[in-house]
Design a protein around this nucleic acid. Structure first.
Lengths: 335, 335
DNA sequence: ATGAAAGCGCTAACAT
DNA sequence: ATGTTAGCGCTTTCAT
């Protein structure tokens, strides 16, 4: 299976008896206002077509120093939240003529580090990433190289870089207050234990509010390890079920804990909402098929993805003003 | 914000007073058995470290003709099925040292065509794609260039290329038979209307079985346009609700139609399973929170993704035997 | 054991 | 209006 030599700009030039430069100019659309006669331009285009010429973007990139590619690093693209985010990033990037390389960290620092190195070596024009616990130093590899960077969903507080997030604290406080106003008193919080501000802010929004109403019970704040989440969530729910006092509601800090949590609630014969109410940070497509009342927080994922790309593109075009965007979320009630 | 010049292999060579070639050899790990003294090798590595050298993979790619990148084209990465598939493709590619560029077609031929062109121009070493209705000609652009290709989820019957799919026909027939054996008679099928074999096979598996038992009612075969699916599914469910005879079950051909379908079933006060039973082609994470009996077909997504990459890598390494893999699925019962 | 240099395909500055 | 040529940063063959 021998690959036949691809046709290059040189081949076209040879065939037409003109120079590479001329061909390059017309094929990259720079023939217009400038130089190059219309007939030459036409001839070049025709034979390019004829010979089935396809530009080699790698060569172009090496020459121009631009790859027209951005890198996206998320936790896990199979998670609907990140899948959605990535989708909108991709669609928006497409509008700018950009291509996207995506990678997953699985919340691992090592994988995050590898991803950053790979993307930098591939000379991407910019990076959008979801920070990982403890990864600030690694992020600095990007800024130090002056590669445009936008953080999404979370951000490193001491890093001078753009970010696009939601107002985690306030909406969590609001949701908690809503539960309290409904007369619920024993409120649990189930959240991953790693230290990224999206999560800590959500937790703090809940606990601050509970404190304010003198309802905080630290036994009900469940911290879940990401790697063993299945087991730990199972345990947490079991605990809540068997807690001396009756638990009234559970606040789940993200979609994956919510799904797993609710699954175990059913396994423990906990009825929603009769036994406990639930709130989920993030909207899930299939809430509709659950057919139970769910309080959820809807993030403007599409806007976030698009904004992240817009900000990145500004930087790529040379802007150096840092943008930190906080989107509002909505507290919603299903049923 | 002036980017300071990146350090290149030349800079290291200059600093050490040796030649580029030497530096290249040690830095790309080809110093071992061959030439290059250990001390030279050590010195080079040290100063590379010191000067914070990062290889430029673009330059390397231009030189070697390999980009260590594969392209993945799916329908929509925000769809959990494709998100999962892409995730496993990515994780497997990582093991081979490969990076992944992902793009979405949204079932559009144009977007598919653009994606293929972009990937080819970016000189990817191989492509994994989910075919789009009517896209065989476009796919041939890839094979004609002898770029390794693996189709997943679906395939073009007349294209000589690898694929990794599931046994759509048989499992659909089996699921339908299961319903019939339970005594259900009026069985509806809700499926997208475009012509890709994954879907047509599922539909045919159902209709053939219904025919076999003399139960086929063509009014109950609902074909849904992808772009207007929300509206069309709504209409379909409405039709089923108001059909002169009572409908016993609905077979949904993929996860997105299922979720939307069930949503409208609830809106139409159709009870599951009392009024109608449902079957979903594909497993959904949040079935668990639905807490209703669902018959579903579970595809081995992880295996499919990994296999797709494995096959692609074989081709990249030079194999030219075409592999066509059909995975078995499982018929499962929730509750 | 190392150096020198050609070449990958394209762009862009400079000639003509 | 078009041709020439020097890179872009790396690999690799051929000298030394």
């Amino acid at each position: 299976m021998k690959k036949k030599k691809k046709v290059s700009i040189q081949d076209i030039a040879d065939k037409l008896g003109v120079s590479k430069g001329t061909v390059s100019l017309v094929l990259s659309g720079k023939a217009e206002g400038s130089r190059i006669s219309d007939e030459m331009s036409k001839k070049v285009k025709e034979t390019a077509e004829e010979m089935n010429y396809q530009p080699n973007e790698i060569a172009r990139s090496l020459s121009t120093g631009k790859t027209m590619t951005i890198g996206v690093i998320v936790t896990d693209i199979s998670n609907e939240f990140f899948g959605n985010l990535t989708f909108h990033i991709q669609e928006q990037a497409k509008k700018y003529g950009y291509t996207v390389i995506t990678t997953n960290t699985n919340e691992s620092l090592d994988e995050f580090s590898n991803a950053v190195t790979t993307l930098l070596n591939k000379q991407v024009d910019g990076i959008i990433f979801v920070p990982v616990d403890n990864g600030r130093q690694i992020a600095e590899k990007i800024t130090r190289r002056h590669i445009p960077l936008v953080q999404v969903d979370r951000f490193y507080p001491n890093l001078e870089a753009n970010y696009v997030i939601v107002d985690n604290y306030n909406v969590s406080a609001k949701a908690t207050e809503h539960l309290i106003k409904k007369g619920l008193k024993k409120i649990a919080v189930v959240c991953y234990d790693f230290d990224v501000n999206a999560l800590t802010e959500r937790r703090r929004g809940c606990t601050d509010t509970l404190s304010k109403y003198k309802l905080l019970d630290s036994n009900l704040i469940k911290n879940i390890n990401y790697q063993d989440q299945e087991e730990e969530i199972k345990l947490a729910i079991h605990d809540l079920k068997n807690y001396p006092e009756k638990i009234d509601a559970v606040f789940f800090c993200s979609r994956k804990v919510f799904i797993t949590g609710v699954r175990y609630m059913y396994k423990n014969a906990i009825k929603i909402p009769e036994d406990m109410e639930v709130v989920c940070f993030d909207k899930i497509d299939s809430f509709a098929i659950a057919n139970i009342p769910i309080i959820y927080i809807e993030q403007p994922i599409k806007k976030m993805g698009e904004k992240a790309v817009d900000v990145l593109m500004e930087q790529i075009k040379g802007s150096d003003t840092i943008k930190q965007c906080v989107f509002d979320t909505e507290l919603m009630y299903m049923n």
